[in-house]
Every structure is written in structure tokens, then in C-alpha cells.
Amino acid sequence: MVRTAEASPSTTIERLNALLVKAQDGDPAATAEVREALTADPQLWDSLGERSGMAMGSWIAAVAGERNHIAKEAIRRHLRKLRKELGGSDATPLERLLIDRVCVCWIQVHHAEYIYAVHMGTMSFAQHDFHQRRMTQAQRRYLAAIRSLATVRRLLVPRLPDVRIDQVGQLNVGQHQTNGASIPAQAIGGGR
């Protein structure tokens, strides 16, 4: 396959960064261009996914050791579980990207804590300082990654309306209240 005039990932990111500034200022043309880039450019998502995958691989090798395949596989399994718990399989591309970021940040937090714990006894004051800064930075990134995922989920991902039955037998769908006696039993999971 011949690829023509393909923008490199860093060029795309630079372009999107420039568009972000314009879109933040309320430029409708920039907003339209961003929307186009996010929806009609599968290569963008591919390249971002690829980058996340590469970063993940490097961190797994750093934590497990280059040749320790068993440890690598154990970490990969744990990451698969973490990704599944975060809703990876039926997630949107944006959610998948943010879930991957949470996973990479999770490895970094554990790596920083592991290194510090193992070498703590032999560290100088300057090394203690360096490693504690690394741990703090890693934790801050990890929390920011989780926060972003939660924000995107809350604001962008369409959900089923919040359905629950309150103590007086009323069915609440979102903010609307309905009397439980007036709706069929199957609708609230009863009458089998």
C-alpha cells in the first residue's frame, strides 16, 4: 500500500494544539476542523493507540526486566484486567485512549514506588529527593488521567437514563417521577 502526503503523528498533534487555542477562543471554523479531525481521521486514533502501546511496552519491560517474560505476562494480564474493569471492550475510541493512559500511568506509579522501596536504604539525600519527586509526579499524572476519563464519561458518553425505584414505590427515570402502579410490572423487572 502506498501512503501519500501523510502527516506524522507529531505534526498532527502540533496542528491539533494550534486548533485547541483557536477553539478555546470560540473560533467556529477551528471547532469544525477539530470535529472533522476527530471523527473522519481513523489514522489519528491508530497512531495515538500505537504510541500508547509502545509506551506501555517500554514500561512493562522497565518494571519486569527485559528478559523476564513471566513477569511481563503477569503485568500484561493485570493491565488487561484493569482495562476491562475500566470498560475497555465497549468503550469509544476516546475512552479507550484515556483508559490506556490510566494504565500507563498506573505502571509508572508502581515502578516509581518499587524503585524507591528497593533502594531506599542505600540512597543519598539527593536520591531520596529525586525519587520522591518522581513518585509525586507519577501519582499526580495518574489521578489526572482518572479525572479526565471520569469527566469524558460523565459529559460525553451517552448513557441509559438513571432508573430507580424510591421508597414510596415511585419509578424515577432521570428526573421524572412516575407512579409505580401505572406502569407494567415487566418494565421494572417484576411479574415473571
Binding site: 491539533l16 485547541l20 477539530v34 495515538l48 500508547s52 509506551a55 500507563v104 509508572q108 459529559l155
Partner: peptide, 21 residues
Amino acid sequence: DHQLQEVFSAAELIARLALLT
């Protein structure tokens, strides 16, 4: 750390753009 920072920034950028649009 640099590689992670790149991934982190790119994902943050995309999330911000998605929210803006």
C-alpha cells in the same frame, strides 16, 4: 518519562478537543 509525557499530553489534548467540540 518522556515517552509517557508525550502519550499523556496527546490524550489530554484529544479529550479537551472532544469536550470543546
